[in-house]
Design a protein around this nucleic acid. Structure first.
Lengths: 277, 277
DNA sequence: ATTTTATTGTATTAATATGATACAATAGAA
DNA sequence: TTCTATTGTATCATATTAATACAATAAAAT
């Protein structure tokens, strides 16, 4: 029992695969890898809160992560980038695979709601019986997590959803299937990454104050950090550039604005220097 | 375009799936998830060298990682455990998923050798045309890495392999497809894990000297460690139990034997304490 | 029997990092 | 002009790490 993969696939590249299907176009199962899906946990940050982009199903109060399938002619990471772009309009952002979820019963949660959903799809004639059968198979899903500047995104619901919204982590609605566990795992990875990557680069606007950065870290770690020590530690990394002061209008000393020095940032990562809070 | 997974699967559990197929039994594609495979990077340690369990294809000098497919009625992690048990005879060892490899061209390497291979399979009549067609599809593979006490294993080649052998990391043969990259990634993860888990527990025999432990860490990290500081750091974790001295026969002070105190070890992990070298 | 040798277990010291606190500078309100 | 809250930075005690030293010791060499 052995897997000698993809040789036919390699030497007989497929034809007749429509290149860029519109979102509303009927899903053609022949174009996609069966049994595998992609789910994206897209993190954003605003109002001092860490947020995740979620979709709400039509006529149901069940939310899901932005997801999709892998075209037979695309790399899995390209599929993840495509999903991300379809929902946010953003290209080439920080996007990392973190785990593949392969339990049989991963779709048990909210099973009744999902049955209702399938009935809705059947009645809506959005998909034919073949597609519905394909969707009904067991899927293993690979989770990717992305960090984006929330204000640069244009959330777009997909064909089966009412809304595509940023939801605060501290106020998460009911999620489909095992999506809650997927979010948990993504968070764990984000927290670990925090020790190795100055993550603010992706989540904050170009210029920010030290307090902004600290609040972001506190939102991710869910614990308060000591201000002056945080400042000292980050400054010592030498990856911040200081700009003009930001007059806040408040009756106190105005903070400086900072931005990331991407060159030094890159160098730091190459050296594999981690730092923890 | 959305994935409402596995509802039919959930509510209509499959029947007629043979429970434990013998290794030599013809592969029935209907029993397995299409397009997804499992590959295991199984680490062992002997003669002060980190080793990996590899299989060599019959009549060809091409080596592969132990791998397999996911039965439609089993969790992905169970599939990985099954593969591990089939090749080593070991159950319930340290086994962790680390990455899923989904590039289209992941099988490009050694393509010619693999074509020869498919021809051999065809001629051997080991599989019928349906199975060969199934194997020829593109596969996405999820990598698991395992840590085992090499001396407790009974390596078993599979139906398509001559030998199943421990190969030193410093002396790796040519590997099929992208298996070299898979090994690299597993190593990276092992090295990161080293900062969070006292990994010796899985790779060393029950009792060992401090030098044994240090050499293991040096083999994994590929860099020398300072003896006395290594000793101090590990001792401070409080997870080692000291036993009798081991008379080495050499003309010098005999080292103590140590073993891991699994209770304290567990406690340490729960507290999430990491340590680095 | 004594000396020698290589290795082990532990101590010591200097350098560095961290946690807690202090304090001067300052933008704007009082 | 004084007051207030926040910012940037300094200070000091404590903890951690790296480098080195050294006594203990098993067995070979003398």
């Amino acid at each position: 029992m052995y897997h000698i993969n993809t040789i036919k696939y390699l030497y007989l590249p497929m034809t007749n695969i429509s290149r860029k299907p519109s979102l509303k176009m009927a899903l053609n199962p022949d174009d996609y890898m069966p049994g595998i899906s992609i789910d994206c946990v897209i993190f954003g940050y605003s109002n001092q809160q860490l947020k995740i982009l979620l979709l709400k199903w039509k006529h149901q109060n069940l939310w899901t992560l932005p997801g999709g399938f892998i075209r037979k002619d695309e790399d899995m990471k390209d599929a993840a980038n495509r999903v991300l772009e379809e929902r946010t309009g953003l290209k080439s952002v920080f996007l990392n695979q973190f785990h593949t979820f392969g339990d049989i019963e991963r779709s048990l949660q909210n099973g009744k709601e999902q049955l209702k959903r399938m009935e809705f799809i059947r009645q809506s004639k959005l998909h034919n019986d073949e597609v519905i059968g394909w969707l009904n198979n067991r899927f293993i899903t690979t989770g990717y997590f992305a960090l984006v500047d929330l204000h640069k995104t244009k959330p777009e619901p997909d064909a089966l959803s009412d809304t595509c919204e940023w939801k605060s982590l501290t106020d998460m609605p009911d999620l489909m299937m095992d999506h809650k566990q997927i979010v948990e795992k993504a968070l764990t990875h984000l927290r670990i990454q925090l020790n190795y990557l100055p993550i603010g680069l992706s989540l904050l606007p170009a210029k920010f104050t030290f307090l902004d950065l600290q609040k972001l870290y506190e939102a991710i770690l869910q614990k308060p950090l000591e201000r002056s020590n945080f400042q000292r530690k980050v400054l010592k990394l030498g990856i911040l550039r200081r700009h003009e002061k930001q007059m806040t209008g408040a009756a106190n000393k105005a903070p400086y604005l900072y931005s990331f020095d991407k060159k030094k940032f890159k160098k730091l990562i190459e050296e594999g220097i981690g730092f923890s809070y």
